[in-house]
């Protein structure tokens, strides 16, 4: 097998103008879906992914913490100040790699989706898997860091003896000390979900459009 045929095996068949005749949408829909997925993913970068409100009697307005793909916002300093009593590490120590790479990862996913549009074989699936799983991955990673922070408390901290390791819930309501935590996914995360769904939809239309062409190409090859 030559390298040319190896690449063409991955890229799959090109669509001839004959194929397009009268059924242009058939082949364009996957691309539209993937473009929408990219758009949604790009928008999500500018929006908060996750938000937590901490309520306590002496904070009548609550404390706010908002996570974007690349940074934290809100009462980070005050929350860190309070956490030092129980020996919790600083919030900005969590997921520092993820936040440093966050925007680049999103850009990479967008590029991969773009590339997937050009690949007319099942390999396209491989390219969009990151975008497909991204929302789930975000939550899993968040839960991991919440667990990590809640379980690596400094034993020498002032209140270390009175606080057992804990995991603040990544979504929903939790309690720690006099604080009630309310966590929710935010617009950015929902946009990532929308992106993921567009990718899934695109895969379906992709298969419907290109599988027959691919099969035809294989048969032609075998025949040749």
């Amino acid at each position: 097998m030559t390298s040319v045929s190896f690449i063409s095996n991955i890229l799959g068949p090109r669509v001839s103008s004959n194929d397009l005749l009268g059924r242009r949408m058939h082949f364009v829909i996957p691309t539209i879906m993937l473009s929408l997925a990219r758009l949604a993913l790009i928008i999500s970068v500018f929006l908060p992914y996750w938000h937590m409100t901490l309520e306590a009697p002496q904070y009548p307005n609550g404390l706010e913490l908002t996570a974007y793909v690349n940074h934290l916002e809100g009462d980070v300093r005050e929350i860190d100040g309070l956490n030092h009593y129980i020996g919790m590490r600083k919030l900005n120590d969590a997921a520092s790699l993820e936040r440093a790479l966050g925007v680049w990862m999103v850009i990479a996913m967008v590029v991969l989706i773009e590339m997937a549009g050009l690949v007319h074989t099942k390999w396209a699936l491989l390219l969009v898997i990151p975008a497909l799983l991204f929302p789930v991955g975000f939550l899993v990673d968040l839960q991991f860091w919440l667990y990590s922070h809640g379980h690596n408390l400094d034993p020498a901290a002032p209140l270390s003896s009175s606080v057992k390791p804990f995991v603040p819930p990544a979504l929903g309501v939790g309690t720690i000390g006099q604080f009630r935590t309310i966590a929710s996914a935010e617009a950015g995360w929902y946009f990532a979900c929308v992106s993921s769904l567009f990718v899934a939809a695109a895969l379906f239309f992709h298969r419907r459009a290109f599988k027959p062409l691919f099969d035809k190409m294989q048969i032609a090859k075998a025949g040749g």
């Binding site: 500018f46 929006l47 908060p48 940074h71 934290l72 916002e73 900005n92 950015g188």
Partner: peptide, 11 residues
């Protein structure tokens, strides 16, 4: 978020 986004100031 849209209102807050342009103000994505340092923490």
């Amino acid at each position: 978020s849209v209102i807050a986004a342009p103000l994505q100031a340092p923490v």
